Computed example of a mutant assay.
Amino acid sequence: MTGLLVVTAVPVEAEAVRAGLAACAAAGSGGQGVTVAPVGVGPGAAGAATARLLALAEAAGRPYRAVLSAGIGGGFPGRVEVGGTVLASRSIAADLGAESPDGFIPLDELGMPLDQLGGGILVDADPVLLGTLRQALPAAAVGTVLTVGTVTGTADSTRLLAERHPDAVAEAMEGYAVGVAATQAGLPFAELRTISNPIGPRDRGNWRMREAFAALTAAATALGPVLGPGW
């Protein structure tokens, strides 16, 4: 079996992860046996591309052992700082459902039949993989990471999301879909995010992309020794 598959949305995120793993390899402290691949922005692209990578590896007789969704994201103010690192206890499809006069109704409350292979609105992080990540990144905030198709950009939307998901620490656009692909392949899954901006009204002046990418490289450096071929 091959090791861990790390998927990111865009190439620059993949490059940040690879830089951290390369630093480990150069120091002789691990970093080998991890495949890093950008799979596209948004749930559709990320889920489809991850599923394809997993299927191709399995067909070649070298299936992956686990899947990690990694990249940058927005953090809930007061719950995680810009530049901080987040580990998902679970990844939720936050906008999968229906609007109503009484507010948002999540998919699992609409009476739709949901299968047991990631067909609901959330994917729990694998406890063993999450425990490994937490041990390597003890300062990381741990909580729900929301997957959205549209980045939250107003104070009202931020407030409503925070009320619906009181344990949410961040939002991004791929984690849940990657988790579904991993779950349907029978593989452990986890999600890691570093925070580039506070969730809320769009203010590019408050975005810290460079710091978030640096934090992503630092996280990969810390994870290199524990995420080798054993995963």
Rank of each mutant, 00 (worst) to 15 (best):
L133G: 13
E163M: 05
A51Q: 13
A139Y: 05
A182Q: 01
E58Q: 14
S157V: 06
A214N: 15
V86T: 03
G200N: 03
L223M: 14
A219S: 07
L146P: 07
A182W: 01
G78T: 12
S157N: 14
L87Q: 09
A219V: 02
P225F: 02
V34N: 02
E58S: 15
I72L: 08
M112F: 15
E109Y: 09
G118N: 02
T2Y: 11
A37D: 05
T147R: 02
L227Q: 00
G61R: 03
R210V: 13
G42V: 05
S29V: 12
M112V: 13
L122P: 02
P166H: 10
A136K: 05
S91N: 08
E15Q: 11
A16L: 08
A155L: 15
T147L: 02
E81M: 06
Y64M: 03
G179C: 10
L129V: 08
P77C: 15
A185K: 03
A190P: 14
A155R: 14
G149I: 04
A177G: 06
C24I: 01
A48H: 08
L114T: 13
S196Q: 03
R208L: 11
V86C: 11
G71D: 10
L137M: 07
E15P: 03
L56S: 14
A70H: 02
L96H: 01
V7K: 00
A98R: 08
G153W: 06
L68P: 05
G31I: 03
G228A: 07
R90K: 12
A219T: 04
I105K: 06
G75N: 05
C24G: 11
A57V: 10
R159C: 11
T150K: 09
D115C: 09
A37P: 00
V226W: 11
I199M: 06
T85C: 13
V10R: 02
V36N: 01
L122C: 04
E58D: 14
L146I: 12
G120F: 06
F189K: 00
V17K: 01
E99W: 09
L130N: 01
A218Q: 15
G224F: 09
A46C: 14
E211K: 05
L5N: 07
M209D: 11
A214L: 09
T144V: 10
P63S: 05
V12K: 09
T217P: 14
T2M: 11
